[in-house]
Computed example of a mutant assay.
Amino acid sequence: MTLNELRYIVTLAQEQHFGRAAERCFVSQPTLSIAVKKLEEELGTPLFERSKSRVQTTPLGDKIVAQAQLVLEQTARIKEIASEGKGQLISPLNVGAIFTIGPYLFPHFIPQLQRMAPEMPLYVEEGYTATLRQRLRKGDLDAIIISLPFTEPDVVTLNLYDEPFVVLMDHNHPLAEKQRIHPEDLNDHDVLLLGEGHCFRDQILEACPNLQPRLENRAHTRTAAEGSSLDTLRHMVASGLGITILPHSAALASHYASDILVTRSFVDPVPTRTVALAWRASFPRHKAIDALKKAIVQCDFSDAEEV
């Protein structure tokens, strides 16, 4: 039994698909499949039920996967303890961010962090909140940048900043004549949203509950294809498919001229989201977390290109 085999079964249990699990583990599908089968033979019991459409844990496999998860977390803790004796601002720092934050925050805070800790390599990745949560627990990531609410046992969460939402539209759109937008103003206009799984979609529907019935009735509200990003929504708006709602940082990061797309703020109370930093309470490199926090807080989005 090896740590890699434990990592394989934990990932397979999460993905319920050999191909996706192999991709996340950076191995080929046959390699992962053989390793899982080898572990099942060693333990003398099947861990997974396999079918053409999905893979799921057996009742006993579920217990073994849960224990494997604990082993991987403790292994990550051993590495963290070993790093305590090293320079806290020298070892690599692995940071994840959700899809609606990372592309717009990374270009701002990475140069700041490089100035604060020039000898600390920084590895970044993007993902859904659920994926980043799992990778933080396993020790694959040292810290994650997410949008509240977010709770996780033995994980510290620190609020970084509040970010307002804005409406993005064609410069000739009827709503462009307004200085500020009321949520009810969106009625009878085509509104483009991210697909399910994005927490930003849920936040929009919470801030603009009038969109929910229209979404259920498929009236004037359209969900982008799975895997789409905020940039995809922006391009869809530019192509004349409707309007959308973006976080302020994403609205500023545009390559479209002001005679193509414009933004409008909401009336008070302006819908906002709280961006937060989360890390394991056991993570020993407090100076690295402090440097990361300061680099993010000092970001200034005002120098971004406005739309």
Rank of each mutant, 00 (worst) to 15 (best):
M1L: 14
M1Y: 07
I9S: 00
E15W: 01
R24M: 13
R24L: 11
C25T: 02
S28D: 13
Q29T: 14
I34L: 08
K38L: 01
L39I: 14
E40V: 05
L47P: 00
S51R: 11
S51G: 15
K52G: 15
G61L: 00
I64V: 15
Q69G: 12
Q74P: 02
I78E: 05
A82S: 13
G85N: 15
S91P: 04
G102K: 03
F109D: 02
F109Q: 02
Q114G: 14
G127D: 09
L132D: 05
R133E: 07
R135I: 08
D140C: 05
D140L: 02
L141N: 09
P153W: 00
T157G: 04
L160K: 03
E163V: 03
H173G: 15
H173F: 08
E177K: 08
R180H: 10
I181Q: 00
P183R: 05
D190G: 10
E196V: 14
A207M: 06
C208V: 15
E216K: 07
H220Y: 08
A225S: 12
L230Q: 05
D231V: 05
R234S: 13
L246C: 06
H248S: 10
S249F: 03
A250S: 11
L252D: 05
L261H: 05
L261G: 05
R264D: 07
V267Y: 03
P269E: 04
V270G: 10
V275M: 06
R280H: 09
R280P: 12
R280I: 13
A281D: 15
D290L: 04
I296D: 01
F301A: 05
S302T: 15
